[in-house]
């Protein structure tokens, strides 16, 4: 899921990454709405709010919203910085932003569980951390998948879905594997985001803020999946170096690079 980059990613890689990360983004967004009355996985609404607060002359609120938006951008910036500077150790470079994200979410969960006093300053600060973590995730998934997978907000996705559906009204596109795969990927991300949100809402009524730990578990699965695959690959190479290398080379030659 995380190991491969850009056009070398297969449809399956993008699908797995899209499903798991959008599921966690859906959970985080619903949790932040329940707890803080603010969206943290998307910033479109925040831009509208920023404009509204400026027009009302509420400078304090406008400043807060501006910092939130900047932190989402800073998250994407950090992710891509690791991706473009880690070409030699690709898995590690793709892993670090996700580790940062999990650390952010864990900090929020622990703070909420043990220290949260319900003050406005705390609320604003925790929203800021969540926006940064979602920026990290969105930046990572978008940059490693060549912008095919964006998992934290659905505005672009819904637009793409509308366009793809309209394309599918023509037979030539229905027979085009890329278009069909794109539709499958977008539908999967959409459903996964929604499922994450619903599950978070249900879980919150049972385990409250501990729901954030579930999000961390989902993201840890994403991280460990590739580690597990790499470990198996290394083990196989050690046992049957020539056979495995040959097999992998043949597979690589057969595989057509795909955007979706």
């Amino acid at each position: 899921m995380l190991r491969k980059y850009s056009n070398y990613r297969t449809f399956k890689d993008n699908l797995q990454l899209g499903i798991l990360t959008s599921f966690s983004a859906g959970m985080v967004n619903v949790m932040s709405v329940i707890l803080f009355f603010a969206f943290t996985s998307n910033v479109t609404g925040h831009y509208a709010i920023l404009a509204q607060e400026i027009s009302k002359g509420n400078w304090f609120q406008a400043a807060i919203v501006f910092v939130w938006i900047s932190l989402f951008m800073a998250g994407s910036f950090t992710s891509n910085l690791f991706v473009i500077n880690g070409k030699n150790r690709r898995y590690l470079a793709h892993l670090i932003p996700m580790v940062f994200e999990v650390i952010c979410l864990l900090c929020v969960a622990l703070y909420l569980q043990y220290y949260y006093q319900d003050t406005l300053k705390e609320t604003e600060f925790l929203i800021a951390i969540l926006l940064y973590s979602m920026g990290l995730q969105n930046g990572l998934t978008a940059s490693i998948s060549n912008f095919a997978v964006k998992t934290t907000h659905l505005t672009g996705l819904t637009t793409d879905l509308g366009i793809t559906f309209s394309m599918l009204t023509k037979r030539e596109f229905r027979e085009d594997l890329e278009t069909v795969r794109k539709a499958k990927l977008l539908i999967s991300i959409l459903c996964s985001y929604l499922s994450g949100g619903i599950l978070a809402g249900l879980l919150y009524s049972i385990i409250q803020v501990k729901t954030f730990y579930i999000v961390c578990v989902v993201l840890t699965i994403v991280m460990l999946y590739d580690y597990y695959k790499l470990a198996i690959f290394k083990l196989a190479q050690r046992k049957q170096p020539y056979i495995k290398r040959d097999l992998l080379k043949r597979r690589r030659r057969e595989r057509k690079p795909s955007l979706y």
């Binding site: 304090f60 400043a63 807060i64 910092v67 406005l120």
Partner: peptide, 20 residues
């Protein structure tokens, strides 16, 4: 402009009274 606005936002947050 972005950095300037960030500095300005920081200044406002630190100096302006919170709605609380």
């Amino acid at each position: 402009v972005l950095f300037a606005l960030l500095l300005f936002s920081g200044f406002i947050i630190l100096n302006k009274e919170s709605p609380e």
